[in-house]
Write a protein that binds this DNA or RNA. Structure first.
Length: 641
RNA sequence: GCCCACGUAGCUCAGUCGGUAGAGCACAUCCUUGGUAAGGAUGAGGUCACCGGUUCAAUCCCGGUCGUGGGCUCCA
């Protein structure tokens, strides 16, 4: 048994303490604010309670709410707090699991009575009481038999199921606060009093026990908790802000798109204004693709089922496809992907190595069966257009082609205002086609390209597509939420299934490799993300209406009309508001519609042949000749800022 | 698909403890010609999501279907 422990603090200081000293003991020599804020300690890689005796040397620091691990402890304890309150109200409730999540916690419980949001206030009051009662949170190590006996006695069947699945070598621990004991790995804050009063229950939802839909459904109650009032308010404000930016709300308000029951769920109607933005997105996309030596193609929405047999989709993708339809005794399949068509075009000629790489790009609309419960506005739909491309190349060209794709991805995303990314490399899933060697070669090529570009990434095991591994790029919007858009997939398998060939320098046939890639992913989803990212206030180059001309009175209509025509001839997306309304009203409407520029025309402007420029959100910019405004606007559009 | 909640005018929402509905905005007509975020009057507009059941009577109660939302699961 050691007599002393040597602890290295974050500032590099090394101190020696008697073995068995606790975080609480050490806190006594720390500053006041840390004494108040410390929630747990971190010793080497382990997070421990403040009262746990320290028996080994190592890196040591206190965790507060500022630390990710500190927050996890705080929220984990908060989940217990909520569970205790629920058990007081419903002693028959059986507990599932209650972990911390990104911005709070949840607890899954089994209970016949459905908990409703109306009960939240009551439960919160009970939680406040438990905080007030300030129970110490005590840890106890149990043998497997003790644990099973104990949780059997209190009828926590789900906990027993968990215990039975623990590996033998696991230490089983339970935490007790007052009358409440929960099976839990911990660690926790020292006492319920530490959890404060700035918590809030947020929602209740169904969740399958252990995430498996074959299991029964439990009630999941979400909540959050902050040590300071200000932090809770900020969190609730973020939720409000996200609601204001919701693309479904803005889509309606700005008349961008709709989804109609009579058409079918998950199918999008693009209204004129949304279609305008889409067209700009697509034109930009197309220009860039021509610049980067892609060739544009178009392919049909449906094809014989045989094609999908060849590609392997009927075997590996069936559950995501619409049912086939029969035409003159032949089955046709609405396309869930574009690749088989692209492969088929490749095959219409004998290809030489001199032709490669061949890059086919298509804004291809695909249809996928998604379960009704997962549909969500523009983000998750049943019919969507991919900005798809397939690159056919030789093995020697592969890495270089991936690098080029990555460059194009980041350029396009940046232009749309996204600067932060998370990159994932997804490897072979359980259901796959092709040989293990090919999978490995494909995965290596992707990894090598990422390393060449010096792009940090994480491995996402088993998350590849059935025909190959992929790089997924998630963008972060202004609220810090991440969205998956871009994907780059290396595929040895489909070229094999379709027997693709090119004639090499040696005069012999070789098999090309195919890269699947989408930059925006789905135009629908990307549009939805853009709406939320910009809160509906699109930058000038994307705005569906860029300028609105607002004459003050009838006698200004003529000049207003000429301004309107001038701008229109220069391809400015301009509208003329010559309704019989006051200018204040017209301005309000233009502001609400988030139109970037308003040109106000009254007596002064007619006399001086100028326009009074008002910028959305910024107000009056003063008068200037139309030509000057036009020049400025064109520059702003050109800059895509 | 599953759990919970919801579905009333184009939009946002009231309302009826069962007796076939109301506001604001938008729309139409008229008055008003007004200088940087809502001028006024009048009017039109609803099979209360759909289909059944209970009832003298259903928008309301019950059942089913469809759709929406929050999640689970899945994914571009």
């Amino acid at each position: 048994m050691k007599k002393t422990v040597r602890l290295t603090f974050p500032d590099g200081q090394v101190k020696e303490y008697p073995a068995g000293i606790t975080g609480n003991d050490i806190l006594k020599e720390m500053n006041h604010s840390l004494q108040k804020e410390a929630l747990a300690v971190k010793l080497n890689d382990r997070v421990l309670e403040l009262w746990r005796p320290i028996e080994e040397d190592g890196e040591f620091r206190f965790l507060t709410f500022e630390d990710k691990e500190g927050r996890e402890v705080f929220w984990h304890s908060s989940a217990h707090l909520m569970a205790q309150a629920i058990k007081r109200k419903y002693p028959q409730a059986k507990l599932g699991i209650g972990p911390p999540i990104d911005s709070g916690f949840y607890y899954d419980i089994e209970l016949d009575h459905p908990i409703t949001p109306e009960e939240f206030a009551e439960l919160e009051a009970e939680m406040a009481k438990i905080v007030e009662e300030n129970y110490p949170i005590q840890r106890k190590v149990l043998s497997r038999d003790e644990a099973i006996d104990f949780f059997k006695k209190i009828h926590e069947d789900l906990k027993i199921e968990l215990i039975n699945d623990f590996p033998d070598e696991d230490t089983i621990t339970a935490y007790t606060q007052g009358e409440f004991t929960d099976l839990c790995r911990g660690p926790h804050v020292p006492s319920t009093g530490k959890l404060g009063k700035y918590f809030k229950l947020l929602s209740v939802a169904g969740a399958y026990w252990r995430g498996d839909e074959k299991n029964k459904m439990l009630q999941r109650i979400y909540g959050t908790n902050y040590p300071k009032k200000k932090l809770l308010e900020e969190h609730l404000h973020r939720i409000e802000e996200a609601k204001k930016r919701d693309h479904r709300k803005l889509g309606k308000e700005l008349d961008l798109y709709s989804i109609q029951e009579s058409i079918g769920n998950g199918l999008i109607l693009w209204h004129p204004k949304g279609a305008r933005v889409r067209r700009v997105m697509e034109d930009f996309w197309l220009d860039e693709h021509f610049k980067h030596d892609y060739q544009l193609i178009y392919t049909p929405h449906t094809a014989k089922l045989d094609l999908w047999e060849t590609s392997g989709h009927t075997g590996f993708y069936r559950e995501n496809m619409f049912a086939p339809m029969v035409v003159e005794d032949v089955e046709y399949q609405l396309k869930p992907m574009n690749c088989p068509f692209h492969l088929t075009i490749y095959k219409t000629h004998l290809r030489s190595y001199r032709d490669l790489p061949i890059r086919y790009a298509e804004l291809g609309t695909v249809y996928r069966y998604e379960r009704s419960g997962v549909l969500h506005g523009l983000m998750r739909v049943r019919g969507f257009t991919q900005d798809d491309a397939h690159i056919f190349c030789t093995p020697e060209q592969l890495t270089d082609e991936i690098v080029k794709v990555l460059d194009l991805v980041f350029y396009i995303l940046k232009t749309f205002g996204f600067e932060e990314y998370e990159v994932y490399l997804s490897t072979r899933p359980e259901k796959y086609v092709g040989s293990l060697e090919n999978w490995e070669a494909a995965t290596n090529a992707l990894q090598k390209a990422l390393e060449l570009k010096d792009i940090p990434f994480e491995i996402d095991p088993g998350e590849g597509v059935f025909y190959g591994p992929k790089i997924d790029i998630k963008i972060k919007d202004v609220l810090g939420r991440s969205w998956q858009c871009s994907t780059v997939q290396v595929d040895f398998n489909l070229p094999e299934r379709f027997e693709l060939e090119y004639i090499g320098e040696d005069g012999k046939p070789h098999r090309p490799i195919m890269i699947h890639r989408a930059l925006m992913g789905s135009i629908e989803r990307f549009f939805g993300i853009l709406i939320e990212h910009y809160a509906g206030a699109f930058p000038l180059w994307l705005a569906p209406v860029q300028v609105v001309v607002l004459p003050i009175a009838d006698r200004h209509f003529e000049f207003a009309e000429s301004v309107y025509k001038t701008l229109k001839e220069q391809k400015i997306r301009v509208e003329l508001d010559n309704r019989n309304e006051k200018v204040g009203f017209k301005i309000r409407e233009a502001e609400v519609q988030k139109i970037p520029y308003m040109l106000i025309i009254g007596d002064r402007e007619v006399e001086n042949q100028t326009v009074s420029v008002r910028h959305k959100g910024e107000g009056d910019k003063g008068a200037m000749p139309v030509d000057e405004f036009l020049k400025q606007a064109q520059q702003e559009i050109e800059s895509k800022k």
